[in-house]
């Protein structure tokens, strides 16, 4: 139990840091630092989404960029139509674009959820290395589709002039936009923590360890995994919409397989299947990008070496090393 407390303490400290750092930056008038923190929080959200499939469900998806990109394009398409006052669809009924964040989020969640349902339903027929490859293939499929589809910018992507609005807030103010992203992350973290403890989460965890046992008691591992994969895609899609809003830009890069790899990297740096794993990972990633990127143009070398050392010697990531082993389950 002491180990559990140590991880909880660590998580609380992390939350405090995510509140105090931007507050400091706001008081010290360092808007760039707030933007960095916003980026870390949004990428953490994408990682929390993948962690649901990867950590809890044991589904190594190398195609989560598909959902990240879909969320991004949901924002890009809606906002670009609102920007040019041209409806998205005129027949059989009119669909207008929008600049309202809640509507955009809902669209992003629904579209990436549907995509995850379809991709998951097909991919989960395979397992192991074939699953990794087929999710990668679906990600690449959307990547090349985004590049070759000229209506929404093709290879160049889409720019949005003004950040989308949230009722009652000024989203152009960095600290307010950070507040929105941080609140979303907190809500999703609470939901994920409850999900992991729920009957569904426990069954999913059991299916990861021994699928046969779960099947014996009458639960279908396929359905559990499909639900987990869909929820996971929805969260990553929401992160994609926020990420696009942060940059006011979407491009096919969001769909690229390096994006899938990076989201996975956050989880590994932080710790697989830890609630705060992706949060720690994303914060470290952004900090490294900022610090090492300032020192050397080739900072990816150092990132690569660090990642290699973590995989080879520090299994369990940062949280695993600091807070001790996961409460034993195998």
């Amino acid at each position: 139990m002491t180990q559990m407390t140590r991880e909880t303490l660590f998580n609380l400290a992390m939350m405090a840091g995510l509140i105090l750092f931007p507050l400091w930056a706001w008081i010290a008038d360092e808007p760039f630092m707030i933007t960095l923190a916003t980026k870390a929080v949004i990428l953490a959200l994408a990682g929390v989404g993948l962690n649901l499939a990867l950590g809890l469900g044991g589904l190594v998806s190398l195609g989560h960029a598909a959902f990240f990109g879909l969320g991004g394009y949901a924002m890009g398409i809606l906002a670009s139509h609102a920007q040019s006052y041209s409806p998205i669809l005129e027949t059989p009924f009119v669909i207008e674009g929008t600049k309202s964040m809640p509507v955009i989020w809902l669209t992003a969640i629904i579209s990436s959820g549907l995509a995850a349902l379809a991709i998951g339903a097909l991919s989960l027929r395979t397992s192991g290395v074939y699953f990794i490859m087929i999710t990668l293939a679906f990600g690449q499929m959307l990547y090349f589709f985004a590049i070759s589809w000229p209506a929404y910018g093709g290879e160049d992507g889409l720019s949005i002039y003004v950040r989308n609005g949230f009722p009652g807030l000024n989203t152009l103010d960095p600290i307010q936009f950070y507040g929105i992203c941080f609140t979303v992350l907190t809500i999703v973290l609470i939901l994920c923590a409850r999900l992991a403890k729920s009957p569904f989460g426990l069954a999913l965890n059991a299916a990861r360890q021994t699928a046969e046992r779960v099947e014996t008691v009458g639960i279908s591992p396929y359905k559990l995994r499909l639900v987990a994969f869909t929820l996971s895609g929805m969260i990553t899609g929401l992160a994609g919409a926020l990420f696009a809003d942060l940059n006011r830009f979407v491009s096919p890069t969001m769909f690229s397989w390096q994006t899938s790899g990076e989201i996975m990297v956050f989880i590994i740096i932080g710790g697989v299947a830890r609630l705060f794993g992706p949060v720690v990972g994303a914060v470290i990633f952004i900090a490294l990008e900022h610090l090492l990127g300032g020192l050397s143009d080739y900072w990816h070398i150092y990132l690569g070496i660090l990642l290699l050392l973590i995989v080879l010697f520090a299994r369990g990531g940062v949280i695993g090393t600091l807070a001790g082993k996961e409460n034993a389950h195998d």
């Binding site: 990867l54 080739y298 900072w299 990816h300 070398i301 990642l307 290699l308 995989v311 080879l312």
Partner: peptide, 27 residues
């Protein structure tokens, strides 16, 4: 060191190798 690890570790370690080789070559 990766032969008896799971596929996730293999994917990540070799992803790290890509970063090292690509940036090293660029350097």
């Amino acid at each position: 060191r990766l032969y008896d690890r799971d596929h996730l570790d293999q994917v990540l370690a070799t992803f790290a190798l890509i970063l090292i080789f690509s940036e090293g070559t660029r350097w």
